[in-house]
Design a binder for these strands. Sequence first.
DNA 1: CGCCCCTGTCCGATAATACCGGAAAGGTTT
DNA 2: AAACCTTTCCGGTATTATCGGACAGGGGCG
Lengths: 252, 252
Amino acid sequence: MSTTVPVKAAKISLEIVEILRERNGAGVSEIARAVDKPTSTVHDHLQTLEQEEYLVKEGTEYHVSTRFLQLGNQARSRKKVYEIARPEVDELAEKTGEHANLMIEEHGLGVFLYKARGPDAVQLDTHAGMRVPLQTTALGKTIMAFRPRSEVESYLDRHGMPEITERSITDREELFETLDQVRERGYAYDDEERVKGMRCLAAPITDQDDRAIAAVSVSGPKSRMQGDRFSEEIPEQILRSANVIEVNLTYS
Amino acid sequence: MSTTVPVKAAKISLEIVEILRERNGAGVSEIARAVDKPTSTVHDHLQTLEQEEYLVKEGTEYHVSTRFLQLGNQARSRKKVYEIARPEVDELAEKTGEHANLMIEEHGLGVFLYKARGPDAVQLDTHAGMRVPLQTTALGKTIMAFRPRSEVESYLDRHGMPEITERSITDREELFETLDQVRERGYAYDDEERVKGMRCLAAPITDQDDRAIAAVSVSGPKSRMQGDRFSEEIPEQILRSANVIEVNLTYS
DNA sequence: CGCCCCTGTCCGATAATACCGGAAAGGTTT
DNA sequence: AAACCTTTCCGGTATTATCGGACAGGGGCG
């Protein structure tokens, strides 16, 4: 049944905020339909959120306010791995020319913490803060490969294995076999599993106990991500970057 | 009268989140003291927020989660001025070597939307999303100078004129005189009004009706921000940048 | 070691208050 | 100008947020 929480009102407010994010703003009745509540109720929530400055009202439309920027920054800057990995990810993007990313796991989902665009990078739909099921990216698979099976199971229990594209892994056993390979190989790849035409290579950032803290990746169009570059050059680069980050993490 | 809102529970939840941001995480009882509510109540809110994935629990401490990153990004990216001004602000930082900033007004406060660090930039406490009273920065004063007096009055009514440093403007009439000068001069400056040892120059980005949409600035240590550089070179550069942004804004 | 005190968590009763229906006011379209 | 859609306002009712109190887990100190 649909999660019962102690403070329902807060949950509704947050649902409303989330809808405003997805739709890039909306009016009272539109939101009311989306959350399936009377307009008067939604109106109450909107007023509170606006008075508290978490929403901005433009005419009759409400939008999320920049207040969240501060919260997001705080959430990110707390992460030591973010501060330390950032220059490395920048360098990775610079050297490969492609997109380079940093992902962590949170609440069983993969969260893009940082994205660097290399000189040749193509337009991409990822953005900082974006949340995706772990098994749908090379980043996420790398993280799972270096976590205890029981934990991985709980991630899957929580969020299922949705079929994002036709290539998505939707079978548990198949996933765990893949993870075994990743662990053996030391890095993971993704061949059009999330975005058509895109390939991705990812390496884990682990702690002393070989547990994944995060993962770094390089992703680009299939045309450029093949041959030796895909099987050797770039893997070497991301593995080296990941290693540098690990070392810097321990000395700080 | 401490603002009465329709949905008090939501307000409390948000207060808790804000406290977690300020303190970079905290435990139940610490928060309870801060919001002056029983621990049991706070506990209820924390559980809801964590279940909804807006907080992360690490041991017994709660922290804001990266979920806010997405919301913050959305809030910022919606702003056309952000997308368009960003490269200009980067260039400004590059050319002057100092910090360059972009600010907008929201709910009567100044919000730093973007910050670029030039090659010589010194460490600074500003960060994206930071909110400050408008009259405490050159950025804010520029924005106010190009808004109708009635509106400016309402900003002041709402947030007062706190004495951040000994140099803060705390008198209304004095402020409006300053704003007159800014309007005449076309740009504003700030001489250690917010941060000791720092000077700042700011130019407005206005719309067709000469109303401020945002402001750009360059700020650096007093030692470098003086003489012709302070009174001519940099003012020229920020005014030119602001102008480029205005033009790009209208053609898009 | 054992006590104490400060944590976080759980529970249930009660009073507060979030919620909702309904009605009014403002806008738009036909 | 009327029908329709908004958003806003209001007040009664029943839901539910709140809070005291009780329980449990540590950590520190004597």
